[in-house]
């Protein structure tokens, strides 16, 4: 049976893609951010997951407001990246696992989650930057797993509640664990943490709230479901709502996790950047 080995979180800021493209990882500005990743590479090299479920939020490449799914799951054999309009390099296609995608979609709809399935989906920086961070070199990296994108709407309110996001993750976890093949799966929760790009409050970052979220997501994710969406915008900033992806990831990991790595750095671009490695604990 399929096994979920752990979860990884990271911010997915486009500027990170630029920094990678220009090989700036050791610059003073970037080093405190990029230094979190080598221990994760070692963990990935040791465990070699076959599939990465990459939970991100599309920012206006794969979806537009004409048709905006609240939860969308990729069901393609491969996923292309395209020009996003501001000059970050376009990545080569990512190999999917359509059979596992359909198993997840079947399982979750049966579990009463209403999923939008996508046999074509252009993935944006929210998906590609984490793949580059965790598997540097992408296609040249022998550990690069197959990937399944899951996108949640944070573009347009109403966005999902934190409780729904955590419950989504729990259902996702059940679906994956019922897959009959012996594969290892890692769950990525990308985006966040606090940031706000728009309005007179642009540049808002909230270290205290981010640190609380990074602690509770390990020990007591249920407590975070008490935060309303309005409060999330107020405390994490308008785009800090991307924390929903972390909640989705966490739900899939089961009750107890072992936090092997935690890094937090302000600022990367306009954002409080959080990175975590959470290993699943076998029951």
């Amino acid at each position: 049976m399929a096994k979920i080995i752990g979860g990884l979180t990271t911010s997915h800021i486009p500027a990170v893609g630029n920094a990678i493209a220009r090989d700036m990882q050791q610059d003073d500005y970037w080093k405190p951010f990029f230094d979190a990743y080598p221990p994760i590479h070692e963990w990935l090299d040791k465990h070699k997951p076959d599939v990465a479920i990459n939970i991100y939020n599309d920012h206006g490449l794969g979806f537009f407001l004409d048709q905006m799914p609240t939860f969308a799951i990729g069901a393609a054999h491969e996923y292309i990246n395209e020009d996003e309009g501001w000059g970050i390099p376009v990545m080569p296609p990512f190999k999917g696992d359509a059979r596992l995608s359909w198993h997840i979609i079947e399982g979750m709809v049966n579990d009463e989650f209403d999923i939008t399935s996508c046999q074509e989906l252009a993935v944006d920086h929210g998906f590609t930057v984490p793949m580059q961070l965790f598997w540097p070199g992408l296609g040249k990296n022998p550990n690069l797993p197959r990937a399944i994108p899951i996108s949640a709407n944070t573009v347009q309110h109403p966005i999902p509640t934190l409780k729904r996001a955590l419950d989504f993750g729990k259902s996702l976890g059940r679906a994956i664990r019922s897959y009959p093949e012996d594969i290892k799966v890692v769950i990525l929760g990308t985006g966040g943490l606090s940031h706000q790009l728009d309005g007179e409050r642009a540049g808002f970052i909230n270290r205290e709230f981010d640190e609380m979220c990074m602690e509770k997501i390990v020990t007591d994710p249920e407590a975070l479901t008490k935060i309303s969406r309005h409060e999330l915008v107020e405390k994490a900033g308008a785009q800090g709502t991307e924390f929903l992806m972390w909640m989705m990831m966490r739900g899939a990991l089961g009750d107890k996790v072992n936090p092997l790595l935690k890094n937090y750095h302000i600022p990367i671009s306009n954002t409080g950047a959080g990175t975590m490695l959470l290993e699943c604990i076998d029951d």
């Binding site: 537009f64 407001l65 004409d66 395209e82 309009g85 573009v155 007179e200 409050r201 808002f204």
Partner: peptide, 28 residues
């Protein structure tokens, strides 16, 4: 929320043409 406009249905109705135009700027 100080200095913040939530992009909800109200704003989506007002802004559709502008947003649709901007979405095309993904392409060179």
């Amino acid at each position: 929320i100080e200095g913040t406009t939530l992009f909800d249905g109200e704003m989506a109705m007002i802004g559709y043409a502008l947003n649709k135009m901007c979405y095309t700027f993904n392409g060179a």
